[in-house]
Write a protein that binds this DNA or RNA. Structure first.
Length: 416
RNA sequence: GUGGGUGUGGCCUAGUGGUUAAGGCGUCAGGUUGUGGCCCUGAAGAUCGAGGGUUCAAAUCCCUCCACUCACCCCA
């Protein structure tokens, strides 16, 4: 039997209410903050991601769905959203628009990873980017928007963590200090941390091994090594977050996995501890556009995983608006009535009334049973008698009543 | 990529070496003429994840693979 490829899922009809809800709230919050939708290709030139995300990251090294197409081009299914949006910004000369340019997307993301709770090989992200502005007001807005988005979904038990990891002026000093600090403890570090020390120093702060926690707690903090501009930026961000009353905490251990982040980084996490708990994250990436051969342009963005959101909605027992279903079932008996039912169903739909019509030669009992299972509000019944008298039986499926009315009154009656 | 757990009709579950794999939910049909929901009756639906092995005999034991799941790595 064919199965969906590992790490992919079918989103079945019974799940769709969650997806529609999340997507609608996403579009609505973007509208509220002046972000416009952009859709970029599912695949891009491999170099775009390698340059943007960072050659040394796991995503680029081992998680990308990369292949050569028949024209011998190196192609990759997008492993994140930001690089593509930046490419589009540069390609379409959006630097000439009033800045910042604010864009959002809802799209599939592909990473070849081992599937786990809240982690798939194809997953879906909602993300947004404000490109062309270095003002911490925009950082504040991006964080607030994420917060409000989750609030609008009914997810209340969340915390916002923020940190600043500096810029290309001040970060090297910090990394050097951090490295020196850790080199004194190499004998006691876990083996993953030893690799991190060589390859991704910041990640040392993110280790989950109990034995490594003591080193993290007393490690030098990035905020103590910020240059004047970065320090000022971070202070203003906190001031503005205080101004709008957004609850957050500064977390010195917060680092993010992609190389392009500068200054502000933030994550939003549910209270419940667990493996793949982070529900969304983002930050500033002031060097990415120039890295992608655009002129130097500051930017800040956020992305969240829709599967993880839905996981949280379900865990919190949050009910979502149902998707619309047909409200009328048309049942008929006999060949003549059947033809009348075909015509009637067509006319009802023409009038904008959603209809399920019965098929096959089922007994009336069976047809009504089907109507009941479909949870329609009304069943319309047509038999030979009704055809002869140009009437229909309108049966209220939510109660027990029914009435006979002239055929040409039915639409008006149903539209009430 | 590393390590643990799991895999029985569409869904949930019983069965842990021995006759035709049991039940619940769901689906479909019937309970007399054209009426659903409750109830009753019946039916369909399972090569017990796949392949190999041990055995007189395997859903049950062993191996391999696949998938799901949990943790790590990493990330949304």
């Amino acid at each position: 039997m064919y199965q969906a490829p590992r790490g992919t899922i079918d989103i079945l009809p019974e799940e769709q209410a969650y997806w529609r809800f999340v997507e609608q709230q996403a579009a609505s919050i973007c509208n509220l903050y002046g972000y416009e939708r952009i859709d970029t290709p599912v695949f891009e030139n491999t170099k775009l991601f390698a340059r943007g995300i960072g050659d040394g990251t796991d995503i680029v090294e081992k998680e990308m769905y990369s292949f050569k197409d028949k024209g011998d081009n190196d192609i990759t299914l997008r492993p994140e959203g930001t690089a593509s949006v930046c490419r589009a910004y540069i390609e379409h000369g959006m630097a000439n628009l009033p800045q910042p340019v604010k864009l959002y997307y809802l799209t599939s993301i592909f990473r070849y990873e081992r599937p786990q709770a809240g982690r798939l090989r194809e997953h879906h992200q909602f993300g947004y980017e404000a490109i062309g502005d270095a003002d911490p007001v925009i950082d504040t807005e991006v964080i607030e928007m994420a917060w409000r988005f989750f609030q609008s979904l009914g997810l209340k038990k969340l915390s916002v963590l923020i940190n600043s990891i500096g810029c290309k002026k001040c970060r090297p000093n910090y990394l050097e200090t951090l490295r020196k600090y850790y080199q004194k403890h190499t004998a006691d570090l876990c083996k993953d941390c030893l690799t991190r020390l060589e390859r991704n120093t910041l990640r040392l702060l993110d280790c989950k091994q109990p034995a490594c926690q003591q080193f993290i707690d007393s490690a030098p903090k990035s905020v103590d090594y910020l240059c004047e501009d970065c320090g000022q930026h971070f202070n203003l961000l906190q001031k503005y977050l205080d101004t709008i009353g957004l609850p957050y905490s500064v977390n010195h251990k917060l680092v993010r996995g992609l190389d392009y982040y500068t200054r502000t980084v933030f994550e939003i996490q549910p209270e419940i501890e667990g493996g793949q708990s982070t529900i969304g994250g983002g930050g500033r990436y002031d060097n990415l556009i120039s890295e992608l051969e655009g002129k130097p342009t500051p930017a800040v963005g956020f992305a969240t995983g829709i599967e993880r959101i839905i996981l949280n909605l379900k865990r919190e027992g949050i009910t979502v608006p149902p998707v619309n279903k047909p409200s009328v079932f048309v049942a008929s008996m006999g060949d003549i009535a059947r033809e009348a039912a075909v015509k009637l169903s067509s006319d009802l739909r023409q009038a904008g009334i959603a209809v399920v019509q019965s098929t096959g030669t089922k007994s009336l009992k069976a047809q009504l049973r089907q109507a009941n299972n479909l949870k329609v509000q009304y069943a319309v019944i047509i038999g030979d008698e009704e055809v002869a008298s140009q009437t229909v039986v309108l049966k209220d499926m939510t109660g027990s009543g029914q009435e006979t009315l002239p055929l040409d009154c039915l639409i008006d009656r149903l539209e009430d």
